Computed example of a mutant assay.
Amino acid sequence: MPVTLINPAGLLNTDALRYRQVAIATGTRQVHIAGQVAYDANGQLVARGDLAGQVAQAFRNVAIALAAAGATFSDVVRLTFYVVDWKREMISDFLAGIEQVAEELKIKPAPASLIGVSVLFEPGVLVEIEATAVVG
């Protein structure tokens, strides 16, 4: 397996937040997924006003992009989340979105950053997810 995910002793244990502090990659091919939002295949925004629903759909879109590159969530070494008007009390809805699709997509807890932003490129879009994977 080209990716090993760990939480080193001395750093916050992030298991409950579904990410690890460190990814060690031994593969040779990098896959960079552009920010994915909660659009369906027809370009319609899914789950308007629902952070959990949009997180779930954005993850589904990341999975489609990974598959197109011959990768899966097992190959992901980094996730970056951009969330509109982020407040700490939104964590439950955010994590609920991940839980909705975690088993379906076999999401692995890769190192991640969550960045609060005032707006994304279009009104109604609440979250955008970027991914980096290493395969082979």
Rank of each mutant, 00 (worst) to 15 (best):
A71T: 08
L5C: 07
V37C: 15
I107R: 14
K87V: 06
S118I: 07
L66Y: 01
R48H: 14
D40G: 01
L45M: 13
G10V: 08
G27N: 08
V135Q: 06
G136C: 04
E130K: 12
L126Y: 06
S74W: 01
D50E: 13
A67Q: 11
A65S: 14
V55P: 14
L17E: 02
L105G: 07
T72Y: 08
A34Q: 12
A63D: 07
G43M: 13
T132L: 15
G116H: 04
Q36F: 01
L66G: 01
L79K: 08
A34W: 10
V77K: 02
E89N: 07
G43E: 10
P109K: 05
Y19I: 08
L114N: 00
V101Y: 11
A67V: 03
A67C: 01
F121W: 13
A52T: 04
E103H: 11
V83Y: 04
I115Y: 09
A69S: 15
L79P: 07
A23R: 06
I24Q: 10
T80M: 01
L45E: 11
G49L: 06
I107W: 11
L79Q: 09
D15Q: 01
N42W: 03
T80H: 06
F81S: 10
Q36D: 02
A41H: 14
T4H: 06
I33F: 02
A25C: 11
L120Q: 05
Q57G: 09
T80V: 09
Y19G: 06
L45R: 13
A69I: 13
I6Q: 03
A96M: 03
A34M: 08
T72M: 02
V135D: 02
A47M: 00
V84C: 08
G70F: 09
L66E: 07
P123S: 10
G116N: 04
A58N: 11
S74N: 02
I98C: 03
G10R: 10
A52G: 04
E104F: 12
G116M: 01
G27A: 12
R18N: 14
T28C: 13
Q44F: 10
A102G: 08
N7I: 03
A52K: 05
E104G: 10
A23S: 12
I6C: 01
D50L: 10
Q54S: 12
E122G: 05
R78I: 05
G53H: 13
V127I: 14
A102S: 13
F121R: 15
I115P: 05
V76D: 00
A47L: 01
I107Q: 14
F81C: 09
A38V: 09
P123A: 10
L17K: 07
G49V: 05
V134P: 00
V83F: 02
I91W: 12
A23Y: 05
